[in-house]
Amino acid sequence: EINVTSHGEEQAKHWIELAKRMNLDVEVEIHGDKIIITIK
């Protein structure tokens, strides 16, 4: 399980695309200006 804290939408999209390509599950939480991505 990987937790990524992203401070930008572009960076977040990059991680989500990467996870989808690798067929991994992704959870995205938004806390103000921080985007927390959990890849399982």
Rank of each mutant, 00 (worst) to 15 (best):
W15T: 04
I39V: 03
H31S: 04
Q11L: 13
I30P: 01
V26L: 03
D33W: 15
E17S: 06
G32R: 08
Q11F: 14
E1T: 12
I36K: 02
E10M: 08
V26Y: 09
A12G: 07
W15Q: 10
E17V: 13
K13T: 05
H14E: 03
N23P: 03
E17L: 13
I35D: 00
V4M: 05
E17H: 08
E10T: 08
M22F: 14
T38W: 10
G8S: 12
N23L: 14
H14Y: 14
I30N: 01
E29F: 12
K34R: 08
I35W: 12
K20C: 15
G32T: 04
M22W: 14
V26T: 01
V28W: 03
G32Y: 10
I36F: 04
H7A: 11
A12W: 15
I36N: 02
R21W: 15
E10Q: 09
A19R: 04
V26A: 02
K34N: 04
E9L: 15
L24H: 01
I16Y: 06
A12N: 10
L24T: 01
E1D: 08
H31K: 11
D25Y: 15
V28N: 00
I36Y: 04
N23A: 10
N3Y: 10
E10L: 07
H14I: 14
N3I: 14
M22E: 09
D25F: 15
N23Q: 05
H31W: 11
K20N: 14
K34I: 12
A19L: 15
M22I: 04
L24P: 01
A19P: 13
S6I: 15
L24D: 01
S6M: 12
H31Q: 08
V26H: 01
A19M: 13
T38E: 02
G8W: 15
I30D: 01
E10D: 11
A12M: 12
H31V: 09
T38Y: 08
H14L: 11
V28F: 03
H31E: 06
V28R: 00
A19C: 15
E9H: 09
T38P: 00
E1Y: 10
V4Q: 07
S6A: 14
E29N: 04
H7I: 13
G8H: 09
T5N: 10
R21P: 14
N3A: 06
E1K: 06
I39K: 00
N23W: 15
I35A: 01
I2P: 06
R21T: 11
D25N: 08
M22S: 02
T38N: 03
K40I: 03
K13S: 05
A12V: 14
I36T: 07
W15E: 05
L24E: 01
I30Q: 02
G8N: 11
E27V: 12
K20G: 11
N23S: 08
I2L: 07
G32S: 11
V28A: 01
H14K: 11
I35H: 01
I2G: 07
I30H: 02
M22G: 04
H7N: 10
V28M: 03
E10H: 08
K20Y: 14
K40E: 02
K40M: 04
K20Q: 12
V4H: 04
H14P: 05
K40G: 03
K40F: 08
I16K: 04
I37F: 02
E10G: 06
K40T: 08
D33E: 05
I2Q: 07
K20E: 15
